[in-house]
Design a binder for these strands. Structure first.
Lengths: 122, 122
DNA sequence: CGGTATCCTCTACGATACTG
DNA sequence: CAGTATCGTAGAGGATACCG
């Protein structure tokens, strides 16, 4: 269904099966999986948070990353951006109802992760 | 804590903050997030599955990917590989108790994903 | 403060061919 | 059948500097 054909540098045809019928899990993972994305949602769970505060909370994510992820989350309808003042500019991000609906999963994941005391190899 | 310093091709120093205190959500995501990983676990939920059957179930993942993900899952203690016959060789993969403990989250994710009828933009 | 823009590197992943 | 080996590319993500 979802396939594209490209020709590589050596003139060979290549068929890219983008992702035929990706199961719901893969779809869901694209929304809340991916680096920082789940964490961002989770850190917005209680109240609107300002851009730089969010960056600091994530401790390790660059502004670029945070910015990028927030834009994705906005497009997906999980987060709303609000300008609360110009000069000096201040912006907050908060969850939509849809965003909120993902919190349970993220919280379960957090608990699961903590109880199994997961160590990162690399 | 976890930082390394490298020098790039132009002799500039670079500090890599690997991942300081990644929150539990990020840790968890590394185990069940990532392309195909959640799906593999989910497809093993009922019974042991053979390598090629698994590949087919995922419809779109190459053998290389499936192989790679299965090795990771094995190292993480979520999946067990069993050789059930040589000549012709036959191998199955099944979940460990730990692997099983992730099923609830994945199932919730699946339901969430389905009920919100998520569309993949790209 | 809340971003953009630029540059660069590293790895994830796909295609493909081959092996015991 | 169940992988391994090889090659290539696209893109993710970090560092850094700059802007309104």
């Amino acid at each position: 269904m979802e396939s594209s054909v490209k020709t590589d540098s050596k003139g060979r045809k290549k068929v890219y099966n983008a992702c035929m019928e990706p199961c719901a899990i893969e779809k869901g993972m694209r929304l809340i999986g991916g680096k920082w994305k789940g964490s961002i949602i989770y850190h917005l769970k209680d109240e609107p948070v300002r851009f730089n505060d969010l960056s600091r909370m994530l401790g390790g994510a660059t502004k670029k990353m945070v910015d990028q992820r927030l834009k994705e989350l906005e497009e997906e309808g999980m987060v709303i951006r609000k300008v609360i003042s110009d000069r000096p500019i201040a912006v907050t991000y908060e969850l939509t109802e849809f965003g909120r609906s993902a919190l349970k999963i993220l919280d379960d994941l957090k608990v699961w992760s903590e109880t199994h005391n997961i160590e990162i190899s690399k």
